[in-house]
C-alpha cells in the first residue's frame, strides 16, 4: 500500500533556536525546506511580532519568504487565551471575536487552516461555520492529551464536524497515543527532580509489564519518585489506534508530536510505525506536521538532528 500522507513541520519545532536568536524566521523556513518538509504551521503568538494584529509590512515579509522557499502556509495556530483579563475569564463573544480575527489574518497570510483549542466551546465553534465559508479558512481544534474521541465534549465537537461539510475539523496530536514515557522525561526525573535512575527504570519496567502501581510501594519510593510513578501511570497506556478511524475523516492535518528519537525507527513512547501504518490503511492523504517538543525538557539536544530523523521517519 502506498503512503499518501505528506511531511509538514510546525515552526514551533524550532522554538529553542528561534528564541535564543540562533535562527531567524527565514533560517527556520530554509532549514524546514532543506529537510524535505513542504508545508508549515506557524504559532502566531510565537513568531508574529505584533500579534494578534500583524502589520502590513510583516504580512508582505512573510509571504515573500514562503514564496522564496516554496513552502505551503498550512496552518495559523491560535490559542484560546481565556485568562487574558485580570478580572474575569473571556466571554463567548470575546472568544468569537479573537477567533474571527485570527481567521482573517490567517487568510491574509495565505494559510488554509486556523488551529484553535478545545476551550473554544461547542457553541462558539459551531458559530464559526458560516465565517469559514465566507473567509475561506477552515477551523480545526487540536486534540491534545489527555483528550481523546471518547471525552464527552469531543463527542459534541465531532458531531459538529460531521455536519460542517468539511469546514470544521480536528488536528489530532499523536501525544494521545503515548504508550510509555519518552527518554527526556526519564532524564528530567533523575537530573531535575532527584529520582534514582534505577527506580525510574524500575517504574517504567513495572508499567510496561502491566503491573499495578501499588506494587511499587515495597521499593520505598521517595516523594519525587512516587510523583514520577503517578505520572507514568496516569499519562500513558496502550495506543488506541481505532481512534484514528473516527479522526481521519475530519483531520485537516496531524501533529506528529515527539520529544526525542534515538533514530528514525525509534518510537520513543509514541508508536509511530503502527500509527503510520494505520493511516496508510485508512488512506489518509493529508499532512503530518513534525512537532518536536524536546525543548520543554532539555536545551542540549541537537534539534536539527531530531527534525531530520523525523523527516526520515515520515518519508522512508
Amino acid at each position: 500500500m502506498d503512503k499518501m500522507y505528506q511531511p509538514a513541520i510546525t515552526l514551533y519545532s524550532f522554538s529553542s533556536d528561534y528564541i535564543t536568536g540562533k535562527l531567524s524566521l527565514e533560517d527556520c523556513l530554509k532549514e524546514a525546506r532543506d529537510m524535505g518538509f513542504t508545508a508549515i504551521e506557524l504559532v502566531a503568538s510565537q513568531m508574529i511580532p505584533e500579534y494578534p494584529y500583524p502589520s502590513d509590512e510583516w504580512i508582505a515579509y512573510f509571504k515573500a519568504l514562503v514564496a522564496k522557499y516554496d513552502l505551503e502556509p498550512l496552518c495559523y495556530s491560535a490559542y484560546i487565551d481565556m485568562g487574558i483579563r485580570s478580572d474575569r475569564d473571556l466571554t463567548d463573544e470575546e472568544i468569537f471575536h479573537s477567533t474571527l480575527n485570527d481567521m482573517l489574518y490567517a487568510r491574509r497570510l495565505g494559510f488554509k487552516f486556523v488551529r484553535t483549542q478545545h476551550a473554544i466551546s461547542p457553541k462558539v465553534f459551531q458559530s464559526m461555520l458560516p465565517y469559514c465559508r465566507q473567509i475561506g479558512v477552515k477551523l480545526a481544534i487540536e486534540m491534545h492529551a489527555p483528550h481523546n474521541p471518547e471525552v464527552p465534549v469531543w463527542q459534541e465537537y465531532l458531531a459538529i464536524m460531521d455536519a460542517s461539510d468539511g469546514q470544521l475539523g480536528v488536528v489530532p496530536d499523536f501525544g494521545i497515543f503515548a504508550e510509555k514515557p519518552h527518554e527526556l522525561l526519564l532524564i528530567q526525573a533523575v537530573e531535575d527532580f532527584g529520582c534514582r535512575r534505577e527506580i525510574v527504570d524500575l517504574v517504567v519496567d513495572h508499567f510496561s509489564q502491566g503491573l499495578p502501581q501499588e506494587e511499587l510501594a515495597r521499593h520505598q519510593l521517595s516523594e519525587a519518585e512516587q510523583k514520577f510513578a503517578e505520572e507514568v501511570y496516569k499519562n500513558h497506556g496502550p495506543a488506541r489506534l481505532d481512534w484514528l478511524d473516527r479522526l481521519v475523516p475530519h483531520s485537516f492535518y496531524m501533529h506528529g508530536k515527539y520529544w526525542y528519537l534515538k533514530d528514525e525507527h525509534d518510537d520513543s513512547g509514541v508508536p509511530y510505525q503502527r500509527i503510520l501504518h494505520r493511516l496508510t490503511e485508512l488512506g489518509y492523504s493529508g499532512y503530518i506536521a513534525c512537532e518536536y517538543e524536546g525543548h520543554h525538557f532539555r536545551d542540549d539536544i541537537d534539534v536539527k538532528d531530531q527534525l531530520q530523523k523525523f523527516a526520515r521517519l515520515l518519508t522512508s
Binding site: S15, I19, V43, S45, Q46, Y51, Y79, D81, I84, S86
Partner: peptide
C-alpha cells in the same frame, strides 16, 4: 516562555 503574552497576565 516559548510564546508571547499580553501584559495583563
Amino acid at each position: 516562555n516559548y510564546r508571547g503574552h499580553f501584559l495583563s497576565t
